[in-house]
Design a binder for these strands. Structure first.
Length: 339
DNA sequence: AAGCCGGGGAT
DNA sequence: ATCCCAGGCTT
């Protein structure tokens, strides 16, 4: 009885506060599973306002999953550049080809089948089933985990409490309007039940929330002590000859695989790598932070690059054609530092 | 269970 | 600077 009231409150809030988004459908519309899937892949660890322009570019260039399946991975990475977690783009392309070639271009509707596809895990399989097909799956992302922890008064860190959180979330999930309910919870999580300074006075769950009643809702759920991240160091070379610049493609590495970068050293812990003695060019140190380390790169312009920094594959790119290659934010930052 | 994988927004 | 995010994959 209590749980029914909670989902009704959530859905009523959604009807009054629903935000229009390019991948969001009205109750009387039939959702396009391709757009729902694409949005979910982009929204992983990424905020809505960041995703919107990427979603527009992708759907304009590839309106259907069959179009995306026929694309080159290089082009997919190019449109993905700047969005981060590039394994998502590689899995996106792999999944599109699977759907096109083995599923006749039709997405499966059950969470279990969806979860077998690359890039689709426990969260996304439930979200796609609920939002695209109205399957009453229990959708638990970071927002929902935080809301549930607060409503039920769970003080444990999310990472150590996932089973309890899922069970509690399941007990609240309505049979009807599963997609609207899931999206409503995520809107509430990102806009009201925020990690810091939650806006409890605007929350449709206020009267059901143990964390609110405790007087310190922001203390739920507990946080894990986050380890400080190390700093790595590298050297990179800008080598321009006759309006062409030397670039190389990242292959083999896990990070930024498939993207183009400046030739340079590996990323060393502790200190800058030794430079050849004949290099005395002026330089700029550029700092960039990845998810698990800082990187300080010493950038310098040189007239030639030693073979040890080329790493095989290389490309002389016309400096006016950068916008045709997939570059990471780091590489863009290094190039920008010289202007 | 814990580590790896980007980048940007909010504070 | 620090924390967080519409997580999944790997070990």
């Amino acid at each position: 009885m209590n749980s029914i009231k909670i989902s009704d409150n959530v859905l009523n809030w959604y009807d009054a506060n629903r935000r229009t988004l390019p991948w969001r459908y009205e109750q009387d519309q039939v959702a396009d599973p391709y757009r729902v899937w694409l949005s979910e892949m982009m929204l992983q660890q990424t905020q809505v306002d960041t995703v919107i322009p990427y979603f527009q570019k992708f759907t304009a260039k590839w309106p259907t999953v069959n179009d995306l399946a026929k694309a080159d991975l290089d082009d997919v990475l190019h449109l993905w550049q700047g969005l981060g977690y590039y394994a998502r783009a590689r899995n996106l392309h792999k999944c599109a080809k699977l759907i096109a070639e083995q599923f006749n271009g039709v997405f499966p509707t059950s969470p279990a089948e969806l979860a077998t596809l690359p890039g689709i895990g426990p969260y996304a399989s439930a979200a796609i089933a609920a939002i695209a097909f109205n399957v009453p799956a229990t959708v638990v992302d970071g927002n929902v985990a935080r809301i549930v922890s607060r409503v039920f008064g769970f003080s444990a860190p999310i990472r150590h409490n996932q089973k309890h959180i899922y069970t509690a979330a399941e007990s609240l999930t309505p049979c009807l309007r599963a997609g609207d309910y899931a999206q409503a919870l995520m809107d509430i999580g990102s806009g009201i039940c925020t990690p810091r300074s939650p806006k409890c006075n605007l929350c449709p769950l206020q009267q059901n929330c143990k964390a609110y009643k405790s007087g310190a809702p922001e203390a739920y759920p507990g946080r894990l002590e986050k380890p400080s991240i190390p700093t790595r160091y590298a050297v990179a070379f800008i080598c321009i000859n006759d309006k062409q610049m030397l670039l190389r493609k990242r292959t083999g590495q896990k990070m930024l695989q498939g993207l183009w970068e400046l030739p340079g050293s590996d990323w060393y812990i502790d200190s800058l790598p030794e430079l050849p003695e004949d290099i005395h060019e002026p330089y700029v140190d550029v700092k960039h932070t990845f998810s698990h380390f800082h990187l300080i790169t010493r950038v310098m312009q040189v007239s030639e690059v030693d073979a040890e920094y080329l790493n095989g594959a290389e490309l002389l790119c016309n400096i006016h054609d950068f916008d045709q290659l997939a570059l990471s934010t780091l590489t863009k930052k290094l190039l920008q530092s010289q202007k």
